[in-house]
Amino acid sequence: MLTLADLGVLREVREDADGVVVTITPTYSGCPAMATMRDDLVHRLADAGYAARVEVSLTPAWSSDDITAHGRAALREHGLSVPGPAPQGPVTLNLLPTRRALTCPRCGSAEVSLTSEFGPTACKALYRCIDCLEPFEHIKEI
């Protein structure tokens, strides 16, 4: 199982006079899953007997480094390629295809090629494995 805490999206849980206040942060500014995550939190906490309110935090901006070790293992188990360390320091222009040392999450081959830096969701890039020929998704470093 992969939780919002594993993804680093869950920032804080506290109790106040009205119930539980949960703080989450979007992975990307346009992440369309924010409403679903909020609703799932309200739902689960209601099941556990808590009235919950969900708030948003933008600081610090989410980084793929926030995904926990457990989260990475769960993502791998589900056939996703996990991000390497997020870039640090000044933003540089990169005109060459991004090079990442990845292995195919299905067969383990290191012979993989980048199809696109943009995938089916904002947080993923598309790859394919040259050995087993299957496509796979890589969670991008940000």
Partner: peptide
């Protein structure tokens, strides 16, 4: 908002 946007715009510019 801007600090978050920097990460996204880096991918757009590349």
């Amino acid at each position: 908002i801007a600090a978050k946007g920097v990460k996204e715009l880096t991918y757009h510019r590349d």
